[in-house]
């Protein structure tokens, strides 16, 4: 039983890690094709990527879109969650349903709907259009995480603050936000990652200023290249750093 478990574990880890390991190894390939045999180590492809202007612009665009769209989604989600947790409004259930609904619809359909609407009202494909789309997909996530984090304890603290004469913005800023910091951080980082990695909405709703996944996509058209491996490895490295940092700081307490 023990050996069988170990063998299964090794086999599955091999399957899961194979593409990533291959990706990283052949990003150092000293040759034109990222396939065996491995011809030696070079940093040429990383240098090429880091000096590629289109790539660096796409990287900057991705960062801006991810940062702003997750901040907007977080703010809207936070306000809505504290509003709905505070009082029972007529139609509360319906409102929660509507806010969560985009989560069940595939990104392609959301992108298509926005593309048609933007065409009609004259908003050109742009980073702004993409950002709006990213808020649509991340708002349900932020709302759900924050709404779940507001328990009875939080509710009574908020009520106490209000009874003591705090204004609404003071309640939110000085009481609710500090109490919900872990949930706010988790929601923000998840939203950031999803926006950073999102392809189809960015693909349909940008034209000249593209984001990183779209730029990588257009690189793929010219076939396999160690340069693509290098970009992929860099993106992977960034995500791993974010995830490991989160694991070591935010979620440490929760898990133990």
């Amino acid at each position: 039983m023990k050996y069988l478990s170990l063998a299964y574990l090794v086999a599955l880890f091999g399957f899961i890690l194979l593409p990533v390991v291959t990706l990283v190894i052949f990003s150092f390939q000293d040759g034109r094709l990222p396939v065996p045999p491995f011809k030696g180590v070079t940093f040429e492809w990383y240098a090429k990527i880091l000096t590629d202007r289109a790539m660096m612009e796409a990287l900057g665009n991705s960062l801006i879109v991810a940062l702003l769209s997750s901040l907007v989604a977080l703010t809207l989600g936070f306000l809505a969650a504290s509003g709905l947790a505070r009082v029972v409004l007529p139609g509360s259930v319906l409102m929660r349903g509507l806010l969560i609904a985009p989560m069940t619809v595939s990104y392609l359909i959301i992108a298509l709907g926005l593309l048609q609407m933007f065409n009609k009202i004259g908003i050109r494909p742009s980073l702004l259009a993409t950002g709006i789309g990213h808020v649509v997909i991340n708002l349900p996530l932020c709302f759900a995480i924050l709404y779940a984090a507001i328990g009875e304890h939080q509710k009574s603290a908020l009520k106490a603050a209000r009874d003591l004469g705090a204004r609404e913005w003071q309640v939110l800023w000085f009481v609710a936000a500090p109490m919900l910091t872990p949930a706010l951080a988790a929601a923000f980082f998840l939203a950031f990652t999803f926006s950073w990695d999102e392809f189809i909405i960015a693909f349909l709703l940008t034209r000249f200023d593209v984001t990183l996944p779209v730029e990588i996509w257009s690189m793929l058209r010219s076939g396999l290249s160690p340069a693509t491996n290098a970009v992929g490895s860099l993106v992977f490295l960034v995500s791993v750093i974010v995830v490991v940092t989160l694991e070591l700081t935010l979620f440490r307490k929760g898990s133990k």
């Binding site: 899961i16 890690l17 593409p19 990533v20 291959t22 990706l23 052949f26 990222p34 396939v35 990652t193 990695d197 392809f199 990183l212 996944p213 990588i216 996509w217 793929l220 396999l224 693509t228 491996n229 970009v231 992929g232 993106v235 992977f236 995500s239 791993v240 974010v242 995830v243």
Partner: peptide, 16 residues
């Protein structure tokens, strides 16, 4: 771990 890599990159890696 690879869950967190870019979606496009993950498919590219398999093509590789």
């Amino acid at each position: 771990l690879p869950f967190w890599t870019s979606y496009v990159v993950r498919s590219y890696s398999w093509a590789l």
